[in-house]
Write a protein that binds this DNA or RNA. Sequence first.
DNA 1: CAAACTGTACTATATGTATAATACAGTTGT
DNA 2: ACAACTGTATTATACATATAGTACAGTTTG
Lengths: 125, 125
Amino acid sequence: MVSFEKFIPGDGPIYQQIVLYIKREISAGNICSDDEMPSRRVLSSLLGVNPNTVQKSYKILEDEGIIQSHSGAKSLIVSDEAMRKKIRTELLEADAKNAVATLKQMGVSKNEAFDLIGRFWKEED
Amino acid sequence: MVSFEKFIPGDGPIYQQIVLYIKREISAGNICSDDEMPSRRVLSSLLGVNPNTVQKSYKILEDEGIIQSHSGAKSLIVSDEAMRKKIRTELLEADAKNAVATLKQMGVSKNEAFDLIGRFWKEED
DNA sequence: CAAACTGTACTATATGTATAATACAGTTGT
DNA sequence: ACAACTGTATTATACATATAGTACAGTTTG
């Protein structure tokens, strides 16, 4: 069963956060093919959001071929190694590009950026 | 005159992107007190967005004490060194925390993160 | 079989974001 | 003074996001 223990509410639309969470867990190897997704109703209750919001996330994951749903049964993850690598590359590029662009606009040097990342990495280990 | 040359459209509400852009430019020291903001109409035309959207940004900046507006005249930046440092700390903490949390959820190690940041830093220099 | 769960679909409502058009009073520059 | 700009305010419209409630057919489980 796919766990949402590490899910941390953040910025932006909730349905997008859920999609990203699943993609990142797949990217990390914490979710594999045939893992069961929690039902729409269960997850909505767990996250404290509306079932329709969760359904929107699942619809997107389904359209992208990341989960597979059979009416009446639980949705399953479908992600082979090629899919996992593709997702990982996409997410890492987007995150790194975003972080670098932001820090650079603020006039942070490469070394200062490393110090900063290193400091926050330690604080959470 | 405050320049928007480095402004790159991103994710999230436009009015928030404009607010963040100004804060990052102040943080970088590229914008100082008494610098003139472009008028609402000029900036909306420059960015290709609605004047009301720009107005919403300026209203937020005004409420946070970052700009000062006199009806009829151009809005001015008001940012002393204390304000600059406060803004810089806030933004750096938020950005670094966000980047670290994201990379960690994807199972990226500290060294891999440094490699990644370093790679994207070089590509844009 | 039957109860409980599942995915899916639909309507309605509220709020946030963005656009469009207009108006008016204050200032700036010639 | 006068034209051109400025900030500010208003109304209307449209789409995105999130919630609420309901419904129905397929499956899983006891």
